[in-house]
Design a protein around this nucleic acid. Structure first.
Ligand SMILES: [Mn+2]
Ligand SMILES: [Mn+2]
Ligand SMILES: [Zn+2]
Ligand SMILES: [Zn+2]
Lengths: 135, 135
DNA sequence: TATAAATTTGTAATGATTACAAAGTTGTAA
DNA sequence: TTACAACTTTGTAATCATTACAAATTTATA
């Protein structure tokens, strides 16, 4: 479990003013690596922070993404998911149980010839199917 | 330009009753490889088919996807795009001009070790950045 | 032709996300 | 401390893509 003090420094180091709400949202993402939705983040935190607004969660997550400390996962077309693991990795979603699994990408995968002339900012690899338990 | 007769056969071969609307939607996708949205498909076709309903476009595209003759591209989180090219390829979206480019994936890319035990149905590779023109 | 099945259509509902402005908080300078 | 500006949070309303639904139309079958 990440401590408040550490998160405070981490946010500051990335140009983010560490308000209480922002710290709590980041800690939640840091401690829950199951790629939660806005709704699940909100529902979890509003128990502790009764005044919390869902708009704040949206604003905070957008800010975190702009500052580069979280990834937005759009493996599902009808809702975004969020990830404090900003390493270059892929996501697998099981169509049966809904769980989203991380997997490593080869070191310099996707060094596509045709894209020599393109400048690449983001890379997303999404797979869907059945996980070992559900298969 | 694909002829109506050919599309008619193609749809039948995939268990799809070739109604006039379905043929026109498929032909549009087959002839426009720029990954159009529901709205652009609808706006283009309703000029020719005044009775066309956007619901029909949605229904038709969902059916095509279920039958495996088109891909749904969710590179953008706020709208789906559609592709009659069902070969295994990746998509690059330019953040400047918005254009979506196709690119080849290595033959058996993404043969990830960790995923040996998983059964993979779909694979999506999305990149974002600047295209050569906009860079 | 008559009847059933499939398809299309228009409208209403859904639901995630965004816009917006008021309220609250924090930092700073006098 | 006080005053003011900047920043953050909050609640509500709007947006907008997509889906639900049932009536109307078309097509298939007997
Ligand atoms: Mn992840
Ligand atoms: Mn494509
Ligand atoms: Zn599963
Ligand atoms: Zn461009």
């Amino acid at each position: 479990m990440r401590t408040i003090e550490k998160t405070d420094e981490y946010l500051k180091a990335h140009g983010i003013m560490p308000s209480y709400q922002r710290i709590r949202v980041f800690d939640y993402l840091h401690n829950n690596r199951n790629h939660p939705t806005v709704d699940s983040i909100y529902k979890e935190l509003v128990g502790d922070i009764p005044s919390l607004s869902k708009t704040t969660v949206y604003n905070t997550l957008r800010l975190f993404n702009e500052k580069g400390i979280i990834l937005i996962i759009n493996i599902e077309d009808n809702e975004s998911r969020f990830d404090a693991d900003i390493s270059n990795h892929g996501h697998f979603k099981c169509k049966e149980c809904g769980e989203i699994f991380d997997f490593d990408l080869g070191k310099d995968d996707l060094h596509i010839l045709k894209l020599e002339e393109f400048s690449i900012d983001e890379q997303h690899v999404y797979l869907k199917g059945r996980c070992p338990k559900c298969k």
